[in-house]
Nucleic acid binder design. Sequence first.
DNA 1: AATCAACACAACCGCCGGGGC
DNA 2: GGCCCCGGCGGTTGTGTTGAT
Length: 288
Amino acid sequence: MEAKREEIRKGPWKAEEDEVLINHVKKYGPRDWSSIRSKGLLQRTGKSCRLRWVNKLRPNLKKTDNDVKNFWSSRQKRLARILQNSNPPSSSSSSISKSHKMNGEVPGFEIENFPSQVQKYCSSMEDKSSQSCSLSSIDNNYDIIKMVPLPDLVNSKLLHFDTTNYAHIEELDQRENYDNNNNNQCTSESQLQISFSHVLPQPQQDMTFSPGSQELLARFEDPYFFDVFGPVDDAPELAVVEQPFLKPATGCCCDGGRDGSENPDAFFDDFPADMFDQIESLPSPSDW
DNA sequence: AATCAACACAACCGCCGGGGC
DNA sequence: GGCCCCGGCGGTTGTGTTGAT
């Protein structure tokens, strides 16, 4: 059946169309989007009208929707490219195999493959407790690795890649203390996991750590890196939305980006300082 | 100046859940 | 309960811009 095809306009919006849309919203409010077309006001789908309003035209527009999505999307793509390009052609000795993980051994995670500060820290931790940060150790819950604390964050934060391939931080001592005190400020691990998984790529099971990737990992040495999670002592819950990403005051800045140099630093360097300003804080677990 | 790669941005598409009939 | 419509969201695509070569 050859129904009469109404012409549906696509592509960039004209100023006249915006005007019509705005007038419609003024009259009827931001709803009944499909009626805009049925009334013959615009040859746009209701979805298209809604999207235009939400993303561009509405008053007090907070650019936290499409822009943020695009931001993370581009970051993700760039990081994927960085990691891919930095992988050696074949490096079986530096990849993590399932069998090795079952044995608690992780070839390629030899400590000498990691930045010097990580090596130092891990050496020191191995002397301290059963919660060793040995890069080759495996515990029950996280089948890949623990790594990368800073000297002044020892016993407070460890980075994990867990079995779901999400990276997250566990605040060992902090959580313990809060639990002991039955304190509502106890960090929600799931919140941290969500937040952090936005920052980092999900590591692959066979992730390799070539020199380029090591550079990326080395970024965790940056004392400001963990600032995105806010001060541990103050408000552990989802500090990431309360505090803008901070750049180091000195050093490790940044020529990366569109020059194709594929410097892993570039991934972290262009986070807009106010990017989380307009995101509302999530309720604390106690409010759930 | 021309070309190219990478990026930013705008918009569309597909899927899903909720609500009304 | 099933269907349909609508709105929301995540993923993707298309296009313009920018900076390097």
